[in-house]
């Protein structure tokens, strides 16, 4: 219960870093959860983030699981609200003035500039995540097969995620 204000602060702050998607914020999220607040261990962050990939809808709703683990249902609720509402209001407001910004020359500059930065931040986040997730030959092979299949085929990735869970049960104990 006493963690609720900290949860709100941390996840509202993290939400502002999700330029281009949730992965951009991952390294900072890990620092905040593991090192600053000691809410979860590094492995647990990897587990919870991975669980988010199995969820329908926005995968970053994994923030609700963090809240649930720290402070129960109220924790889950405030994490979700803190993470989705402030950026939501920003999007709402910018969405309304977007048309009027059409002739503001910097609008294009911001879009063109932030595009590659968002990709770089996401890859940076993925490298941080991968260090916790790819821990040996077998996990490396699973990751590469999934990568190849998602790039080359139309098979829904959730099947690879579920298949890897089953494989993990047998081979990664």
């Amino acid at each position: 219960m006493d963690q609720i204000p900290a949860l709100i602060r941390v996840f509202a702050y993290l939400s502002l870093l999700t330029i281009g998607g949730g992965m951009a914020a991952f390294p900072e999220m890990k620092v905040q959860i593991v090192e600053v607040h000691h809410w979860l261990t590094s492995d647990q962050v990897t587990h919870v983030y991975s669980t988010g990939q199995m969820s329908p809808g926005p995968n970053m709703m994994m923030v609700a699981e963090v809240g649930q683990l720290v402070s129960g249902f109220l924790g889950a609720l405030v994490c979700a609200l803190a993470f989705f509402v402030p950026t939501g209001i920003l999007t709402f407001l910018v969405g309304r003035v977007w048309k009027r910004l059409e002739h503001w020359p910097w609008r294009d500059s911001i879009q063109k500039g932030l595009g590659p930065v968002a990709i770089g931040l996401a890859v940076g986040g993925l490298i941080t995540f991968g260090k916790g997730a790819i821990t040996g030959w077998l996990t490396l092979i699973v990751g590469l097969i999934t990568f190849y299949a998602v790039v080359k085929t139309k098979i829904n990735p959730v099947f690879f995620i579920l298949g890897s869970a089953v494989l993990g049960l047998f081979a990664l104990r």
Binding site: T46, H47, Y49, S50, T51, Q53, M54, L126, F129, G130, G132, A133, I134, L138, T139, L140, V142, G143, L144, I145, T146, F147, Y148, A149, V150, P157, F160, I161, G163, S164, A165, V166, L167, G168, L169, A171, L172
Partner: peptide, 9 residues
């Protein structure tokens, strides 16, 4: 296993 596949995804 899920984390490994998620990395690839």
């Amino acid at each position: 296993g899920v984390a490994a596949a998620a990395t690839g995804l």
